[in-house]
Design a protein around this nucleic acid. Sequence first.
RNA 1: GCCCUGGUAGCUCAAUUUGGACAGAGCGAGGCUCUCCUAAAGCCUAGGUUGUGGGUUCGAAUCCCGCCCAGGGUACCA
Length: 587
Amino acid sequence: MFESEQKEAEQQIYLYLKERDIPAPETFQWGNVPFEGEWGMSTSLFQTAALEARSGKRVNVPERAQEIAQELAAHIGKRRSFSRVEAVRGYLNLYFDTGEFSRKVIAKVLEQRRDFGKGVPKDEQVMVEFSQPNTHKAFHVGHLRSAILGDAVCRIMAFAGYDIVRANFFGDIGLHVIKWLWNYMNHHAGEKPPADTTRWMGDLYAEAIRRLEENPDLEEEVRELYARWDRRDPEVVALWQKTRQWSLDGFDDMYEILDIHFDRLYSNSDAEEMGKEIVSELIKKGIAEDLRPGGAVVVHIDDLLKLDKEKYRVLVALRSDGTALYATLDLALAKMKFAEYDLTKSIYVVDVRQTLHFQQAWKTLEIAGYEWAERCEHLSYELVNLPGNVVMASREGTVVLLEDLIREATARALEVVEEKNPSLMKEIKQSVAQTVGLGAIKYPMLARDNTKIVTFDWEAALDFNGQAAPYIQYAHVRANSILRRVHGLQPNPVAPSHDLEPAEVDLIERISQLPNEVQRAAEDRKTLHITNAAYELARSFNRFYKQCPVLDAPHEIRKFRLTLVAAARQAIANALNLLGIEAPPVM
RNA sequence: GCCCUGGUAGCUCAAUUUGGACAGAGCGAGGCUCUCCUAAAGCCUAGGUUGUGGGUUCGAAUCCCGCCCAGGGUACCA
């Protein structure tokens, strides 16, 4: 927003240094002055002083940096585009006219509304594949991270200017499905799924595992069923199709509650055949080694690349019995994606344990001559564990089901609404509880670095205070509650007539940062930048709310502050929207 | 063995484009603020040798090397 001022300042600095024969660094890095009540930009002179030191002069770098900064401050201080100029501990701080800055920021938000923070279209199509649940299994909190993270990354990247294709990849075949079918045929034949389908599917799967553990002899029956499936026995296929749909319908319900949608659905079963074709092709090209029937089909990637140290190791492309495994499918899936879309990137939101598998699959495709393979990117994230670093696993019984979490969170949220705002209408309370409960679930999955393990515990999940989604939602509600009382907002924001309070300047600064954070989050694929921005925005607003009366303020101040509140409400709503979290009007 | 990730306040996490201003929040602890736009809030206090030992640098949580701890991956699981 102040690029021209920055350029001019830089020119003046270079000129000044040149005149005095002081060696100048190639670039100056500009940052914001740590907030002290006014908005400004800042650069350090340490580099400049260090250059002098290296050129032979005996100088104390911090002292010299401060000296140069002082000289520059005196020099630049005469200019009018800065309201104030100072030198502090080796930093040159240039302060803007806060009034004009404020007006610019607010005007921009109120003009762009929902688009405030949006980047210019980049003309790049990017596919983001995420969630990838297995059919015939439960959907637990461990599965939630990919879904929530992937959704938010899509929202952020789309807002940043990418053309995003949202993809899902269902695990609808494999041993787990056969075990489920076996249990169903023998003990639940003809049963229809109840209302909470996904839980029931998961229960039947857990039951299958239990029966097989209690009586290992039954494994034989499962193998027979697998063989029937492989022959495409019509009865088995029909049952598979029907039950698979039950799972998919259950997932649909959950995605709807979570407000997550997909543009393109893939299934393991879609990729199976093409995967096998690619493997034959790899064998023909001499890339893969066919050790069947004694061994599997393998690719010695390190040898093919002539690497001395082991890096990609060995990819198993096909089982010795000729059946497909995960790697087989991934070869095909990548190809399908690039055949169908013109992608500059194909992102896979999958947990960190699969890093090597992806590198193997994509490197193999690269060796096979598919030049798009290098455009595949693994967005890896750490797991969601239970306290004590206990991994969630259906067969261990260490899972928290999504349905249970949503139910508990909304129930808890409803309790709080009843207590805080009993006069709300019943339906509104319900919807608030849903909004707050879901926000509280999503936020912790998004508010930490992708490389950090999320530890799920009920107490923290149901604590709506402090650094959490409800705090941000509440700030939005407060802004809304002020604006509800006025009719017709001043259409053209004007510069404030009063000296801005620190809380006002801080809030304006936070608002102005949102567009940068969107770009940064999109580039780094880090939702953390947006949760931080949203939280800081809410915090600034809450402080402003406490310190600066709006409706009771003198006329001119009131006019200005109303536009600021409207801008803040918009910025908070936009940030929450990027996270897939709703911004409620009341709560 | 080899590879990857993490280790920051009692707990959960940050740290502004990657080396710069006094390492910041929340929870928890102690205290304060509702005749005032929703107190799901705000304010104050206490709490740190950034796992550890070296190195590079004017300057290190951040870069390099060693070590310790935790987790993950490592040919037919996904």
